[in-house]
Nucleic acid binder design. Sequence first.
DNA 1: TAATAACTAGGACGATCGTCATAGTCCACC
DNA 2: GGTGGACTATGACGATCGTCCTAGTTATTA
Lengths: 193, 193
Amino acid sequence: MPAPSPREQMILAAMSLFQREGYAAASWRRIVQESGAPWGSAHHYFPKGKEQLGLAALEMASQTVAASMARCFPEGGVAADGVRQLFEGGAKLLTKSGFTAGCPICTVALETAPQSPTLTETCNSAFQLWRQTIADGLVRCGMSAPYAAKLAVLALAAFEGALVQARTAQSQEPMLDCATMLEQLCREPKSGA
Amino acid sequence: MPAPSPREQMILAAMSLFQREGYAAASWRRIVQESGAPWGSAHHYFPKGKEQLGLAALEMASQTVAASMARCFPEGGVAADGVRQLFEGGAKLLTKSGFTAGCPICTVALETAPQSPTLTETCNSAFQLWRQTIADGLVRCGMSAPYAAKLAVLALAAFEGALVQARTAQSQEPMLDCATMLEQLCREPKSGA
DNA sequence: TAATAACTAGGACGATCGTCATAGTCCACC
DNA sequence: GGTGGACTATGACGATCGTCCTAGTTATTA
């Protein structure tokens, strides 16, 4: 890596703190401190203050996660495998962090929605992007678009929810259990009306 | 209601603030103020401070939610109907609050797990209780115990995750979509290994 | 009725919050 | 080799944080 700029350092640090403790606990001072970025430049790069930095962090998280999600569903793959990979990937990251790092968007959304319109809108866009990313992936695996759209909502909800359970229980099990159940819905795309 | 005691008032207010803005934003002062309880008595009822009050609020939330969950699955009912009722109930409460009130446990868990051992443990117990409550309900509807246990994990995860999506999007749709998909898993308790 | 406990009022304490202003340093470019 | 703009250092500002203390009020006993 070519030594990230102070601006990037701060965004990364904010994202990390959002994951671990949420928006309110991620104070301006702690973000700057943990980032290692120079103290004086914080207000220079984000003259509108904490919310501006928060927005940037959420947007970066949104893109990063979407990219990893897309990678789970290669062209011509199997839908169920993609879902499993998605959940296993999440479980792995969670474990690697010692069960401290969850989803930054989810945490911030719960703290601020719908109180802060800008933050809420950014979180909403992230969820929308992720739903679409999963749905597109499922379609790439041969699933019909309408069914994929519905399943993507459930998959994302289960992903976020399982992440919370897994983190709280400090165990991967909820993630893997959910994956198993969801695989079933991938293999039987049609039945009821 | 026979006029709740100051202690109950404070617990209720803390629960409400946890739902709306999380643990960090729910300051000792705001809790006491919103509760309408007398200022001076806060430290008298909870001499160990904010964490003690937080614990009490989480425990009350745990019990309250578990009771509503159990009511969704009456003896001899249909599993799919129970799941739908669960999600519709959640969606209704969320809407009634103007999409401001989510799950207090989930919010606090994301902010504090696993940093604060006591809070994390309480959140974990709540999730465990809820999983068990849903699983018991599904068994009451005739489902096999092992399958019900697995489905309960997914149902709870989807419930929490859909709640976040719905709140952020300010729409019931994610909740109802998830319910529809989950109903499918209720009707086909067996297929794969 | 007296005394003993339970509860309430109100504020002081140091720490930390987000914001902002001012001065100083660095470096690219003419 | 200056000169101007980008960046950094440092700390003051008022507000709010969680905690804790002392004095006052109310209720419950003997």
